[in-house]
Design a binder for these strands. Structure first.
Lengths: 246, 246
DNA sequence: CCAGCTTGTCTACTAATATAGACAAGTTGG
DNA sequence: CCAACTTGTCTATATTAGTAGACAAGCTGG
């Protein structure tokens, strides 16, 4: 009687729960490269057949792996192996698109919303008089369709009127700046902290509860050193590692 | 706050059952020598405290180890680490007491019962005329108080009248033979098989259900080569390894 | 002998694990 | 568009794991 290669049976009554056995097996297939980064895992019903267990049991195993940041489930599409964390250099020149492309992945920016606001803190950091109207822009940035960060930026409204249209079109802050006559810009200051993702961030960044976000507060300036952008970015810490060279 | 060294907590909700964690921990302490062979394990209630679980959970862990032949529980006394299997040479000269003492353990024989019987098969193997009355003697032999084997022996009643008294006194077949003028004797033939212990053997040999016994059928002869003893011994296979030198 | 230890067995109950099935809702490709 | 796939969520139920307590029965040392 030939062994059925499609079946990888589990040990029942061994004192190790089935969901743990399955999670360990899938994890080892990921770390050994049988399931490479960004590849799609077999569907839950397929894993159900392979391991000879109930779908709920497979789901619990996948939930454990998602909790560890090893896989990510997308409703309607399937489960995917997470990429290795992207090294994200922090220095005088910080460009999201360049950083993502340097890792061989495809950058994308999605505009969430635009508002005109008056806000004392960013105004002060932009070096503008109090109560100057600001453009506040909310974005989500991704690599190969995987969301990496969610950012809020403040610009002087008078100087960057219509910036959001260019952002909408290109998804890139650098290109939107270029369309407004800013050929180059530089990082003035960067403050880094971290905390658990809040529910809104879990949703936008497709994170399981309890995962951390890196909170990066930054000020960018034009060629003359005048502040033009105050930005607060929340990176999914499982997908991005900040690298500071001194 | 100092760590409580008396407590070795277990991982709850890890997907590994508590009885398995405890069994693995105790097993590793046995194999690393923290609990040497024949030493007494902490009592169940003590282990209950150390691991912070219910006594039933500890008992299940100990049952697993007993099932593997690593420990043995004795009602009213405690649980003990099993000795390494005793190498038991099978050749022309086979002596239980010598074999046990060679391993530095104390041999003992306990007489279970004596009967006068007529039995065709042992009579034939003793080379006696059919229907010759035989002495049938049942024994349990142990080392350091741990039962190793249960044996049934047949002798010619006429020649060995009163043998059982000597056996009772000395617990040794060799000495009983000596008292009957047999200074030396030799193994003529040995047949070896194995099977699971039956309930009576489980009881006499203090074996958990399902463990194997080695069944050794042997004929011993006097210095002139005449058969004097037909013996069927059941060794606890976890405690004795038969060694045949060729 | 007997108090105090040990293991063995039993019942009752709660929590964790696993199964079974149904249906909602998002995605994809023809 | 829509059929066929995917993941997400819900209810219900059976089995295993773990807790709690009581009591029987064997051993040991004073």
């Amino acid at each position: 009687m030939p062994i059925d290669l499609d079946r990888l049976p589990v040990d029942r009554g061994s004192g190790v729960s089935l969901w743990r056995q399955i999670a360990e097996r899938i994890e080892s297939e990921i770390t050994t490269g049988a399931f490479p980064p960004s590849s799609q895992l077999p569907s839950e019903s397929e894993l159900t057949e392979r391991f000879g267990v109930n779908r709920h049991t497979v789901r619990r195993a996948l939930a454990v792996l998602a909790e560890k940041g090893l896989v990510r489930a997308v409703k309607g599409r399937g489960s995917f192996v997470e990429e290795a964390p992207l090294p994200y250099p922090i220095g005088r020149r910080v460009r999201f698109s360049e950083n993502v492309m340097a890792a061989g992945r495809a950058p994308r920016g999605r505009l969430l919303g635009v508002a005109t606001v008056v806000d004392a803190e960013p105004t002060r950091r932009l070096g503008l008089p109090p109560r100057t109207p600001l453009l506040r822009i909310e974005m989500v940035s991704s690599a190969n369709g995987v969301p990496l960060s969610r950012s809020t930026s403040w610009f002087e409204k008078a100087r960057f009127e219509g910036l959001e249209a260019e952002l909408q079109r290109t998804g890139s802050v650098s290109r939107a700046f270029a369309a407004h006559g800013i050929a180059d810009y530089a990082r003035l200051e960067t403050a880094i902290s971290a905390r658990p993702a809040d529910p809104a961030e879990q949703d936008l960044l497709e994170l399981p509860p309890g995962r951390a976000v890196l909170v990066v507060d930054a000020v960018n300036a034009d060629a003359e050193g005048r502040p033009i952008q105050v930005q607060r970015t929340r990176f999914a810490a499982d997908r991005v590692h900040l690298v500071v060279k001194s």
